[in-house]
Design a protein around this nucleic acid. Structure first.
Lengths: 198, 198
DNA sequence: ATTTTTATTGACCAGTGGTTAATTAAAGGG
DNA sequence: CCCTTTAATTAACCACTGGTCAATAAAAAT
């Protein structure tokens, strides 16, 4: 009856991305179906496959924005004019805050395994981690061991993963977050003193 | 043609659980379909629904075993005749080891959110955590704060979640695990000294 | 005006979790 | 031993999922 719409209402890549992002943020990768996106855009789901190879590729594009956002947050903290140790603290908290205020995104960015989408975004995830590690290194005046930075990252990751789904936003668990970061910084601090024999 | 099989080859709850467990361990909750289990058992997938309300309930039963296994591991470490600090170290390593050597199970036990199965196993997960916390408390001669024990648990959790999918077993990342646990214990140790003003 | 390209549809595929009427084997009762 | 009841199973069905593709019509190029 009507293959190809009139140009005024033609589907664009941006329209799809926009709708995908909206639903993705609300429901997460697995809960959003290509058909539900198509329905919202008043088109058949087949049309989306003309613009994107598959679901993973579509959401990979959406995810890019959030990797950029996270990277921007890291930059922002480092650039601030404050004490290094204050900035370090804020960096850790900001990471957790991002994770818990963007739970669907965080899941696809750092948690999914063997699901097509993570294969694509693995590089971006790695880059964000490198950025994080570099920031920590800088803010600590290069006094930290790489493996300890890794340990911090993994521990922050654990916090986000643990509270995800249980808390709906950072605000709800900020006290626990502060305590967790305190705990990690305590370890980092004791490193500088007692570590030289291992 | 043949509703109801002859008693010699009737389906039992145990047969289903056994097959479900096998596939579950290999592929994980979401990858295993009720139909694939049925196929292996030479029955229709509808038959499984006679024995189990739904997929979540079936795998919940399977998961119980692994909660017990984890609890057993915790007990074992505590009971050993060794230095408390050695046991504490082993407890942390054992948790990571369990997580990485039982990745599919760990995912359903501690990672899934809002997927029916986690609602059922939340209680068991909480119990296992309590057991872990109690063990830590005991092994540290009650010198630790609850929130620090929480922080350790979350950080260990982070390690498992992070390496899951990337490593196929504990052995592959044991060095990183040792370093991570070192990092956490360093924080716990410094607690005892410097913590009294917060 | 005609051809070519581009975007879209809708039917289709194989798969998912889950339900249910119909059926038959087994168990229980007289 | 027959008959009824109960328990277990099947197959067809539902509404979904991601993904493909021939047919088609609008738009662009000639």
């Amino acid at each position: 009856m009507s293959p190809r719409k009139q140009s005024s209402q033609e589907l664009t890549r941006e329209m799809i991305i926009h709708e995908a992002r909206t639903k993705f943020v609300e429901e997460g990768f697995h809960q959003v179906s290509m058909r539900s996106i198509a329905k919202e855009l008043d088109c058949s789901h087949g049309a989306i496959y003309y613009h994107f190879k598959n679901k993973a590729e579509l959401f990979y594009v959406v995810l890019q924005e959030y990797f950029l956002e996270l990277n921007g947050i890291i930059d922002e903290v480092v650039i601030n004019r404050e004490e290094n140790c204050t900035k370090l603290y804020k960096l850790f908290i900001s990471f957790i805050e991002f994770g818990l205020n963007n739970q669907s995104q965080y899941e696809s960015m750092f948690m999914l395994r063997n699901s097509e989408i993570d294969v694509l975004s693995q590089e971006a995830a790695n880059f964000s981690y490198q950025k994080f590690a570099q920031a920590v290194q800088t803010l600590s005046n290069n006094t930290l061991l790489i493996k300890d930075i890794y340990a911090v990252f993994i521990s922050l990751h654990g916090f986000v993963v643990f509270y995800r789904g249980y808390a709906t936003c950072f605000e709800e668990v900020k006290d626990a977050a502060y305590a967790h970061v305190d705990f990690l910084i305590k370890s980092l601090s004791s490193e500088k003193i007692s570590r030289s024999n291992l």
